[in-house]
């Protein structure tokens, strides 16, 4: 598996994966913290009752929900499309690497890239908050938990898009599903959590650690059981679906 992951990193060369990731991470951080630099925001930055960090986390959650499905779809699609255009499925199969192994290697490679990217993204948002002048002490737990869950949801969707990109040669489908997912993820922030849990992309909203309660922004505790169930479901579905790819005759 390690060899497979290293091969995926070799294949990433000139795919502009890293620049794409950097641009989007910076863009998400900038968009999430843009409201901090507005004139009206200054008054709340030092007011602990206004919970400026929770408000920033909520803003971050919304921007991440809007952009992450597209980012993961683009990364997965680019990494998988090369196997179609370069006859890589057959090349790998004749070297004894099945399509499922290839998909898992792609997922592992992208997951390794997304790990620092998601961490840095959250740190940039926190940094922007500090730079904007929030003096209230930050509660690290919701931020850390949200960042971890955002990373895992990104990896879960990466798995979905890799499978889709492997299954359907036309990459517009995979990226199109990602865009539709972005819409659904934002929409899920506006509907009750009970409904969001039933929409796959709704988990970008379900993992939110900040919410509005009677007009006030507060930290909230997401339904961890549902989130865990979602990860188990995605993991099982990816395992089964990629095994099915092994049986498909190309």
């Amino acid at each position: 598996m390690t060899r497979g992951v290293l091969l995926e990193f070799r294949k990433m060369h000139r795919l502009r994966t890293l620049p794409l990731l950097i641009v989007l991470v910076v863009a998400v951080a900038a968009l999430s913290s843009a409201s901090l630099f507005s004139r009206g925001a200054h008054a709340t930055l030092n007011d602990s009752s206004a919970r400026p960090w929770a408000a920033l986390l909520l803003s971050y959650t919304m921007i991440a929900a809007m952009t992450s499905p597209i980012l993961t779809a683009v990364l997965a699609s680019r990494q998988t499309d090369i196997e179609h255009s370069g006859a890589g499925w057959t090349l790998s199969a004749t070297a004894g690497h099945s399509p499922s192994r290839l998909c898992w290697a792609k997922l592992a490679a992208l997951a390794l890239l997304l790990l620092p990217a998601t961490g840095v993204q959250s740190l940039l948002v926190l940094g922007a908050g500090t730079l904007a002048g929030i003096t209230v002490r930050v509660d690290p737990a919701p931020w850390a938990l949200y960042t971890a869950l955002l990373y895992l949801v990104n990896v879960a969707f990466c798995a979905l898009y890799i499978w889709l990109a492997a299954r359907v040669e036309n990459q517009l489908i995979s990226v199109g599903v990602g865009m539709l997912g972005a819409f659904l993820a934002v929409f899920a922030l506006l509907i009750p959590s009970e409904l969001s849990r039933l929409i796959p992309w709704g988990y970008y909203a379900v993992i939110s650690h900040a919410g509005q309660n009677g007009g006030e922004v507060t930290y909230v505790s997401p339904p961890y059981g549902w989130i865990l169930g979602f990860f188990v479901l995605v993991g099982s579905a990816f395992t089964l679906a990629t095994r099915h790819l092994d049986r498909a005759e190309r």
Partner: peptide, 18 residues
């Protein structure tokens, strides 16, 4: 086979690693 975005040598190195 051959990944178009890579050079011939890079493609061969992938096969070599495989």
């Amino acid at each position: 086979p051959g990944y178009g975005h890579l050079t011939g040598a890079e493609n061969m190195r992938i096969v070599g690693d495989m």
